[in-house]
Design a protein around this nucleic acid. Structure first.
Lengths: 241, 241
DNA sequence: AAGTGGTCTAGACCACCTT
DNA sequence: AGGTGGTCTAGACCACTTA
């Protein structure tokens, strides 16, 4: 028996095109397919031992995530995951998150805010104990509750679509020393703003939260690349594999 | 010889999955497939006389536009294009547009702003002469120049992805009497803010511009549905065709 | 346990780029 | 023209839903 974890591709993704999507994404992020390289369906077909169609689908979805570019009759190529790309992603994230938090602030009832406090408590516990997986999950849950309350499924799916990418980056580069404490503090500030129903403040904090996350991720990435210079630049605009 | 009109699917879309996408989109918007109805690839396959794979692709893309929902192993269904949906779309549009205008305000050089003035002049001319197609096109060009200058291709493609939908809605419901004059006025205000490099003001105007567009479209739609009540509610949660 | 309908495969087809 | 590689088709396969 296979169970889908409530709509997201969070756990074990059953259909081939979803599994292929995961593999391609992780291989792009780990540098197997360098920026600019072309992703030919025939190659990938041999590599993953599946036919071309699921690969096409996976590539389309990855285009939705911003990781690849697909042109009609011309195939797919890897979008460069450089500082600019990460900044762009987080800038988008920031404004949409702000939008959703603003609306959530208007629409959430007290019991939902109470639930949020509970998740935050569990998050602080897991983060304090240094459990990365659990805290990533709880962090996701924290924001998810807000997104659902904002009652804008279109915006929510945009954000959650990018979450896969952000998650992968986080698992690759980790968090800075003090970032966890900052996250906790920012979440607390957000909770306070929600408690007071202060839309302006809540929106501002959400934006700031994304700015800080962006800055931290860029720092972490800078460090990782500085320490291990060959890691993501093995080939410049090279062949597929 | 077939020529692609500069990357967008603006003109004649060659590959089957793009043509199918256009047809499904227009049939959803014209009410052939009512909200909530399931889109079965086998049915569509017979209807359009193509095999299932291009249809799958088209549905995936339409999911990206927000028009349909696709669940793994469970197929696609039509997202309700109701007031809430339109509001959500324009809310997203507003914040991303704001983001791009803010950055464009920082990054644009004088010649680009000059070009913008030129497009605006042509827009006012076409709009004054009541040329709907030309003015829609020039309006698109106006915003496109700003988006390109903002140097955030990820955000730009999100916006332009939704443009197809907005365009279809506009062609269906048209503009309100005074809306064209408002657009001209709002564009002029935006130009003035850009001339002065006033980021805050420019961002605020961009947001307002989207709010007004949203309000106008909702009014137009309300009128159309009021005048012709059966048009989009022929079936409630009905079968496919 | 059968049925419906989504997914995958292999190979043919055809658009675009190179010579 | 030839080659590469994206796209399309038909049918088999298999997951999920009905009875």
């Amino acid at each position: 028996m296979t169970v889908y974890p409530s709509g997201e591709s969070g756990g074990i993704a059953d259909p081939v095109y979803l599994r292929v999507r995961e593999r391609i994404r992780s291989e792009i992020l780990s540098g197997v397919f360098p920026p600019g390289s072309r992703l030919k369906s025939a190659d990938l077909s041999k590599r993953y031992k599946v036919s071309q169609m699921p690969i096409r689908e996976a590539l389309q979805m990855l285009q939705g995530e911003g990781l690849v570019t697909v042109l009609p009759n011309r195939g797919a190529s890897v979008r460069a995951v450089d500082n600019r790309f990460i900044e762009n992603m987080y800038d988008i994230r920031g404004v949409i998150d702000g939008l959703l938090v603003r609306r959530a602030c208007k629409l959430m009832n007290d019991s939902e805010i109470f639930e949020l406090h509970g998740v935050q408590a569990k998050y602080e516990e897991a983060a304090g104990a240094g459990q990365l997986d659990a805290s990533l999950e709880l962090n996701k849950e924290f924001h998810h509750i807000i997104y659902v309350a904002a009652d804008n499924p279109e915006a929510m799916s945009m954000l959650e679509c990018h979450w896969g990418l952000v998650d992968s980056l986080r698992r690759t580069f980790g968090f800075g020393q003090e970032r966890i404490q900052e996250i906790i503090s920012e979440h607390r500030q957000l909770l306070r703003a929600l408690d007071r129903r202060d839309e302006e403040l809540a929106t501002r904090i959400a934006l700031l939260h994304c700015e800080q996350a962006k800055a931290d991720l860029l720092r972490q990435r800078e460090n990782a690349l500085g320490a291990d210079p060959g890691k993501l630049r093995n080939i410049r605009k090279g062949r597929t594999a």
